[in-house]
Design a protein around this nucleic acid. Structure first.
Lengths: 131, 131
DNA sequence: CTACAACTTAGAGCGCGCTCTAAGTCAACT
DNA sequence: AGTTGACTTAGAGCGCGCTCTAAGTTGTAG
């Protein structure tokens, strides 16, 4: 029999989420109750890891704890919530698209500003046209 | 004589930044000391407004207060800091590009997940293949 | 004349998302 | 037998970026 379960420490290393935060997420329903080994130790499955990585995706794209709670809640209801989960993700996808659009616009504006500074660099140290 | 100056209230309306925050930014050096009218009231110029809008750009692209302080500080030194300012912006531009890349990757992953849910929606309510 | 808006300093409070401590228990490893 | 790592609950603390209050002053508009 292979040891297919992962300790909280290992999960922490694999995901970059601290053990504190992993317990905090579980306590707050972002992660379902992880099965326990003797002595009450958490043993994470590959599926658990996958879910945590998905959470990480949501988190780094700006989803709040509250919304992640909602997503996890729906997931625990089983496949009958597929539609709601899809809708939640679609809404989040929209938000990601808007973030990207906004960032691209800002990127352009900042690139323009950089061009202005480059011009100044050429002008300033040579002549005193401080205009 | 035209009234070319704007009150703090007006700036707040034009930028969406509260008057509290505008004063907070000024106190913390993100905004240079605004010229005062009789009684010490701030009168913002068009240039001030422009700078505040630029700050907003930096803020919404994830720049911290500290970095914005730095940007404002360089600006107050005059055109001789053009190079440093350019470098600061270039570094920030890099960070924006990385944000966009990461978001796009997450976008793809979430789109895939949505496809999975759509499949479930077709499968689940019809048959009991809860595999 | 009276509202109202703005000003000042100094500091409290808040929501978010962790992060850590305390204090005690338990089990596996060496 | 001792060390290590995990566990529990409950709660404090923190960094960030505001947000607001207090309390008193002064100027402008109707």
């Amino acid at each position: 029999m292979e040891q297919q379960y992962l300790s909280i420490q290992k999960i922490s290393e694999l995901t970059g989420i601290s053990t504190y935060t992993l317990r905090y997420y579980e306590k707050n329903g972002l992660i379902h109750p992880i099965t326990r080994a003797a002595g009450g130790r958490r043993q994470y499955s590959a599926g658990d890891l996958e879910w945590i990585r998905f959470l990480l995706r949501l988190r780094t794209t700006g989803m709040s704890i509250r919304q992640m709670q909602q997503a996890a809640h729906l997931r625990r209801q089983g496949p009958s919530t597929a539609k709601e989960r899809r809708q939640l993700l679609e809404a989040h996808l929209e938000s990601i698209k808007k973030q990207i659009e906004a960032l691209q616009e800002h990127q352009d504006a900042i690139e323009d500003k950089i061009v202005v500074y480059k011009q100044w660099e050429e002008d300033y140290p040579l002549k005193e046209e401080s205009k």
